[in-house]
Design a protein around this nucleic acid. Structure first.
Lengths: 336, 336
DNA sequence: CTGAAAGCGCTAACAG
DNA sequence: CTGTTAGCGCTTTCAG
């Protein structure tokens, strides 16, 4: 194995000069830098990661904790992970993969052994048990999602309130005057993340602002429940022409139910959703939707961590703006 | 930060004794072990990963290289990754996540800097450009899939030949006498992995053995192609009652085509597939299938690496036995 | 702008 | 069964 002293000897400089030439932490004359770089290339020198970590107390590794819970859309997790790895590499860092299963002990382990410099946690719950631990660790972290009480921590996620608003604005622009939100199952509004409530807030704010008639309907994640909600909507809001769906599991059954009840999408009813693009694209009638921007969340999460590692202050909360993709399921209201 | 000398002093022993108590690499009297463990717990000692790696030349980290190519089923990759992490943890190792995108340079980097002790590569191609590199690295690796020339390397995958056989045996046992294989697109038989040919070999061997009439049909990954193949099958093999599908993309369209042509599944035609369970389960008629056992592949891959790291010899090729899950798409042949 | 040298915290001979 | 000690390869003061 070729080491820094070998390079130093070969280049006719001291080991520290090689180190500084590599890190750029102090000025090196152009000429010596050239010599050092040539020697490095010629000898095929690679600094030993462990030695580096020991001497510098920086491993240049980030931990990424991925969820295992069912009900989480796998491609979204994967997209996010890839984006974290790619961005981390741009900043000369690697990524250690941990599963939620490892729990708090796993986080403590990789942090306390200095195996990683910082942590990224996905799928953060409202009352996440890892919050106190994160606060106590001596390394920075970023959470995807917003817990109930995030003081002193750093969070990032899609701006779900704005997403709810954007769906409504889209429908309003198309001329729709009576709209409904079909939301997550009731239990989601209690535990889990706060995003469900946020969507409702945004939806309501926007319908009020635009003077639209509106209702909100939590919905179980079962086709039968979708059917019931569809029937109820038609019964209670016969003038309904726009629907926002924030519930991946019932999006397809809901549209099926509407069509079976004699409503064409988008002819009679425009439908927009907050769901992964994959799902929105794959339906019989591709659905106008707002996706969780996983790649962007991953990238931004890493960049927040890099700033924290550099000692900079970062905002506690980062909300990413929603982007709506128009597809076949929304159309201007048929104005008679 | 509490270090090994702190623990040693607290327990009234030498640092090496603490080290050996932790590693078990030499006998320690029950009594001192107790004292050391108590001190460790009391002081909350965590060995520094970098220092360990430097002194022992073992990082206890494995690299996992995941593919990004489209056409790879994401949940399978994820399942595999989770299984690798879980198994690695059982062996006191962590997992560094790399993307295919990093290429050969990435592999060289993590190996040469001693950031990882060993590597796992997914999605290995027949003529994978990384093969020579893997042979030249000073750390062991395991590949998921079989390249054309794997001498000196270690591979593991589903036994696709046995999978082809098992599908046929299943149909034969149900009384089917005339069967067909609908395979991958023609180009897959050329490049990519060898598994497509293996399936054909197994299929043919088993039909011969069982005295079944059979044909093989490569098929493009498009619904129209599926339709054409379905029509061709009915025209050329009117007595056909069993089909094996090894082509995720056309499984659903193919079944649709058969039904549109007046054949009930499984009433007139039994269908079995080699595809992810998720897909098989999600179809209108759940399909009897053989899945890629990703969790098992991941687990076994890690175990192979552990044996190699321990200096043991391991087989170059490991073929995992297929397991068939019966679903609604296969039934005994209607014997008039 | 560059060198010398003191660690970083741990493991593994070597010695008893 | 346990202690002493010499590194592992790098970074970073300190000194010039």
């Amino acid at each position: 194995m070729v080491k820094i002293t070998d390079v130093a000897r070969h280049a006719g400089v001291s080991p520290s000069t090689v180190s500084y030439a590599l890190s750029g932490k102090r000025p090196i004359s152009e000429e010596t830098r050239q010599r050092v770089e040539a020697s490095i290339r010629e000898l095929g020198y690679r600094p030993h990661a462990g030695a580096r970590a020991l001497a510098s107390s920086r491993s240049n590794v980030l931990a990424l904790v991925v969820p295992l819970r069912t009900g989480i859309h796998v491609p979204v997790v994967m997209q996010f992970a890839v984006s974290v790895v790619t961005t981390a590499r741009r900043h000369d860092h690697d990524v250690l993969l941990l599963t939620q299963e490892e729990g708090e002990e796993g986080l403590r382990r990789v942090a306390d052994t200095a195996l990683v410099d910082a942590l990224i946690l996905m799928d953060v719950q409202l009352d996440d048990p890892r919050l106190p631990l994160l606060r106590s660790l001596d390394r920075p972290s970023v959470m995807i999602g917003f817990p109930a009480e995030a003081d002193g921590l750093t969070c990032i996620d899609l701006d779900f309130k704005a997403a709810g608003e954007l769906c409504v604005e889209h429908l309003a622009q198309l001329g729709h005057r009576v709209v409904a939100l079909v939301g997550s199952p009731p239990e989601v509004y209690v535990r889990q993340t706060a995003f469900a409530q946020r969507v409702v807030q945004g939806f309501t704010a926007a319908t009020d602002r635009n003077g639209l008639a509106s209702t909100v309907h939590p919905c179980e994640a079962a086709p039968a429940a979708a059917r019931r909600v569809a029937e109820q909507l038609l019964r209670e809001q016969p003038a309904l022409t726009g629907v926002v769906v924030h519930n991946e599991a019932v999006l397809e059954p809901l549209i099926d139910a509407f069509e079976q009840l004699g409503l064409r999408v988008p002819g009679d009813l425009s439908v927009t959703a907050i769901c992964p693009d994959e799902l929105a694209e794959s339906l019989r009638v591709p659905v106008t939707s707002i996706a969780l921007p996983s790649a962007e969340v991953g990238e931004r999460a890493v960049e927040l961590l890099m700033r924290k590692l550099a000692g900079d202050d970062v905002p506690e909360a980062t909300l990413l703006p929603p982007r709506l993709t128009r597809r076949a399921s929304t159309a201007p209201r048929d104005t008679p």
